[in-house]
Design a protein around this nucleic acid. Sequence first.
DNA 1: CCTATACAGTAACATTGGTTACACATTGAA
DNA 2: TTCAATGTGTAACCAATGTTACTGTATAGG
Lengths: 210, 210
Amino acid sequence: MLQEVFDAYSFVFEEELLEEISEVGILKEFKENEMIIAIGDSVSSMPLLLSGAIKILREDQDGDELLLYFLERGDTCAMTLSCCLGHAKSEIRAVAEMPTKLIMIPIEKMEEWISKYKSWRDFVFESYHSRLSEMLDTIDTIAFLNMDERLLKYLRDKAKINQNELVQTTHQQIAYDLHTSRVVISRLLKKLELKGTIALNRNSIEVIDL
Amino acid sequence: MLQEVFDAYSFVFEEELLEEISEVGILKEFKENEMIIAIGDSVSSMPLLLSGAIKILREDQDGDELLLYFLERGDTCAMTLSCCLGHAKSEIRAVAEMPTKLIMIPIEKMEEWISKYKSWRDFVFESYHSRLSEMLDTIDTIAFLNMDERLLKYLRDKAKINQNELVQTTHQQIAYDLHTSRVVISRLLKKLELKGTIALNRNSIEVIDL
DNA sequence: CCTATACAGTAACATTGGTTACACATTGAA
DNA sequence: TTCAATGTGTAACCAATGTTACTGTATAGG
């Protein structure tokens, strides 16, 4: 395990910390589309992503959902982190976007390391910083863009995360992520196809024109 | 100055830190509607609110704006804080919602204190936590609520901040804050008035039914 | 007092996005 | 092979929001 942690985080942490991480951290693996954390789950450890990607979703009381952002290798979830420090419950839902490995750090250690390791402290601040930026970006997207632009951004983000211009998903799934209806997505996708921006197939969309 | 800092933050910081704050902090005062920071301004110090309230706005490239949240006494701006640590430029605009006093802390001190004072570290984390929560709330609002519900929430928030059910503003200003048009706001306000939820006057709205 | 300006009310219309309904194709399981 | 479940295409309609245009009124400054 040490090797994997080392690969993903060596550019950030000193060796001593890396060893502590691999001592106390618990390795977990998730299959594609497996739920990692649900809204209301109590949070007692903090995840470090070793490989794969995670989709972070917000849900309202009616169960309507909205994609907030993706997490990748080397990221942690500042939302979870925030919950950890407040010993609170999760306000978001996390789903594995692809097969994903992560290492769970118990809260106590995470707090201890903040005093002990400067690199850890910097990492935690940097995480908060990234997450605030992502949230701002999400707000910009839903506040200032129309659905067609949001859809295109979604496809690009997803293509980037998967390092593949062939996005494997259904119209219904996109509709869930963007908090709209399947019909709207089908309609807009068709328009994009006519413009030559994408090519449509059952269960997949090819992003042609970035 | 020490007294004011003490009043606003004594429940958080130890005396030694409070004294450091009043030594290196620079007191600034802003009139109602005065701009505190603009998008793109470089951030070299971090504000602690002593009194008053600040409106935090996001702007897109066309100058369209959107209210993110309010800051009150005892708050700091984690966005600014985030910028400080990254030595970056402001991604938001801050405007005094009412006459406001704040104390500016130079970046160097703010970083130094993170190692030096646990209370400061906790305060900074707590700020990040609050800001993430506020951002989530903002996202919920624009993603899941209709304009009439957003308007009502806006009026309630504003009444709360001003501790006064008489909200002094214009339809145009509300439209800017909610990123919509004046006509839409006038229309919805009229509907709320007919329902007896509010009473309308020139330059002010009375929130009757919380 | 007079007048320019800001503020508010409202109608008519355009656009975007959401809903319902149905057709048809693909796929996997019985 | 057959059938049910899932995915997609599309029309028709509806609701929410945005736009344009015009009205009248309050207010501040000359």
